[in-house]
Simulated assay, not measured.
Amino acid sequence: MRRKLFSYRDNIEDMSVFDEFDRMIKRWQRFFEELERQIDEEFQRMTEPRYQYRGKPRFYYYGFEITMGPDGKPIVREFGNVRSRREGAGIEVVDEIEPLTDVVEDDGKIKVVAEMPGVDKDDIKVRLSDDNRTLIISASGKDRKYYKEIPLPGEVIPEKTKASYRNGVLVVELEKKDKTKKGFEIKVE
């Protein structure tokens, strides 16, 4: 099936959905080939004795997850300690790992699940931003450091937040602020 799409110059271009998908896959292939090349170069450099980290070579942790968004377009989420530089000039390896996280919204509640193996419960710090719309997770263990700021799909009530950590998985349960309630009723005595 072919459809007509308008270009930026208002020219009509005949394009197949599959052509666009092929172009997207080729872009990702080029990205991962370049990423692999840069990681190999960085690994060679970082394994030299002068670049040892706490007596051990630094490790590389990179992954991605592709899901389908509500508009039908793919959403790619990256995690790990290998990141693209903002200037677009290569990659950088940082000490803090960005954990893989999932945010699930259900009936006035938000559940955030983060995979953070290799740290103790006492090493984890969970806090909300000043506007109660961003969850900030950090942890510093013997061999690993984690850090991630997670935008929440709404404002939450800080007093009703619960967190638990078992088997390397952090679960934070938050209650959304009810937007239908306006103000606060005060009882007259």
Rank of each mutant, 00 (worst) to 15 (best):
residue 2 R to N: 14
residue 2 R to F: 10
residue 3 R to P: 06
residue 5 L to Q: 14
residue 5 L to C: 15
residue 6 F to G: 10
residue 7 S to H: 04
residue 7 S to R: 13
residue 7 S to W: 06
residue 8 Y to T: 11
residue 10 D to W: 09
residue 12 I to W: 04
residue 15 M to K: 08
residue 16 S to G: 11
residue 18 F to V: 10
residue 18 F to P: 03
residue 18 F to I: 14
residue 20 E to D: 13
residue 22 D to K: 08
residue 22 D to A: 14
residue 23 R to Y: 12
residue 23 R to F: 13
residue 29 Q to K: 14
residue 30 R to C: 07
residue 30 R to L: 12
residue 31 F to W: 08
residue 32 F to K: 13
residue 32 F to D: 14
residue 32 F to E: 13
residue 32 F to S: 06
residue 35 L to P: 06
residue 36 E to C: 14
residue 37 R to M: 06
residue 40 D to E: 12
residue 40 D to A: 12
residue 41 E to I: 06
residue 45 R to Q: 00
residue 46 M to A: 00
residue 47 T to H: 15
residue 48 E to V: 04
residue 48 E to N: 06
residue 54 R to C: 09
residue 55 G to M: 12
residue 57 P to L: 01
residue 59 F to W: 05
residue 59 F to I: 05
residue 64 F to I: 05
residue 67 T to M: 09
residue 68 M to G: 04
residue 69 G to W: 00
residue 70 P to Q: 04
residue 78 E to Y: 15
residue 80 G to C: 01
residue 80 G to P: 05
residue 81 N to M: 11
residue 81 N to R: 02
residue 82 V to C: 11
residue 82 V to G: 07
residue 82 V to Y: 13
residue 83 R to Y: 10
residue 83 R to A: 08
residue 86 R to Y: 10
residue 86 R to A: 10
residue 94 V to C: 03
residue 99 P to E: 01
residue 100 L to C: 05
residue 100 L to G: 09
residue 100 L to H: 11
residue 101 T to L: 02
residue 102 D to I: 06
residue 104 V to D: 09
residue 104 V to W: 04
residue 105 E to Y: 01
residue 112 V to A: 08
residue 115 E to K: 08
residue 115 E to H: 15
residue 115 E to M: 07
residue 116 M to N: 04
residue 125 K to H: 05
residue 126 V to K: 03
residue 127 R to S: 08
residue 129 S to T: 09
residue 130 D to K: 06
residue 131 D to H: 02
residue 131 D to T: 13
residue 132 N to W: 02
residue 134 T to S: 07
residue 135 L to P: 07
residue 137 I to Q: 00
residue 140 S to A: 09
residue 149 E to A: 03
residue 150 I to W: 06
residue 155 E to Y: 01
residue 156 V to E: 09
residue 156 V to S: 05
residue 157 I to N: 14
residue 159 E to G: 13
residue 163 A to K: 13
residue 164 S to E: 14
residue 164 S to A: 08
residue 168 G to H: 07
residue 169 V to A: 05
residue 169 V to R: 15
residue 170 L to S: 06
residue 172 V to D: 02
residue 172 V to Y: 02
residue 176 K to G: 15
residue 177 K to H: 07
residue 177 K to F: 11
residue 178 D to V: 07
residue 179 K to F: 05
residue 179 K to I: 07
residue 179 K to T: 12
residue 180 T to E: 12
residue 182 K to M: 01
residue 183 G to H: 02
residue 184 F to L: 04
residue 184 F to N: 00
residue 186 I to Y: 00
residue 189 E to N: 03
